[in-house]
């Protein structure tokens, strides 16, 4: 059986995570580190120590904003942002994506909106997200004001060839 480290490296391809020499440049530049349960460099260490469950259930992987600052600045070309993507995929696959429920629900609502119409219809996507997350009232005023200004409409043009879009979702396992 492969270790957690091997598993992550295999899925990521590219520079192996153990190339990290823990300079913490990734963490110093990370805009969201202040809110993370474990900072980006700590996640690298935890993967090396095989702490699979802690990492996959952590809020960190869902708070990463994919800003790619870490990758850009890492002296060893460790792809921390790609690592976060991989960890999110693994968390979803193993059914433990509990770290930040609302972030996960947002992505689900977003993707199901594409699946339905080929393009994002923002109001439908928002309602979908609100129902899933139970966070019904925040941003209600903002949404109404955008609606009044004609920015968002309940119905918008869709992709015509929806068959091709559905096929993409089906073949990639969503």
């Amino acid at each position: 059986m492969s270790t957690f480290l091997e598993e992550v490296n295999d899925r990521m391809g590219g520079t192996p995570i153990q190339s990290c020499f823990h300079c913490r440049k990734c963490t110093a530049g990370c805009p969201v580190a202040f809110a993370m349960e474990y900072n980006p460099n700590a996640v690298v260490k935890m993967i090396q120590m095989g702490m699979k469950e802690k990492v996959l259930t952590s809020s960190t992987i869902w708070l990463c904003a994919s800003c790619e600052t870490c990758v850009t600045r890492c002296p060893n070309e460790v792809d921390i942002a790609g690592m976060m993507d991989t960890l999110r995929e693994m968390a979803i696959e193993s059914g433990v994506s509990k770290g930040e429920k609302n972030v996960v629900k947002f992505h689900e609502a977003f993707l199901s909106s594409i699946k339905m119409g080929g393009r994002i219809n923002e109001p439908t996507m928002l309602v979908h997200y609100k129902l899933k997350s139970g966070d019904l009232f925040s941003d209600l005023g903002l949404g109404m004001s955008m609606f009044m200004k004609g920015k968002i409409k309940p119905i918008s043009p869709r992709t015509k060839d929806m068959g091709s879009v559905r096929k993409i979702f089906k073949s990639t396992g969503k």
């Binding site: 994919s66 976060m84 993507d85 999110r88 995929e89 979803i92 947002f106 992505h107 977003f110 993707l111 594409i114 080929g118 393009r119 994002i120 992709t159 015509k160 060839d161 091709s164 879009v165 993409i168 979702f169 073949s171 990639t172 396992g173 969503k174």
Partner: peptide
């Protein structure tokens, strides 16, 4: 012609292949 959504951050954060195919 008949463009569709690029998948934005939600696709690449959760499903690599989807994030390339869209």
């Amino acid at each position: 012609e008949d463009w569709s959504c690029c998948g934005a951050s939600s696709a690449h954060m959760t499903n690599f292949k989807l994030s390339v195919a869209l």
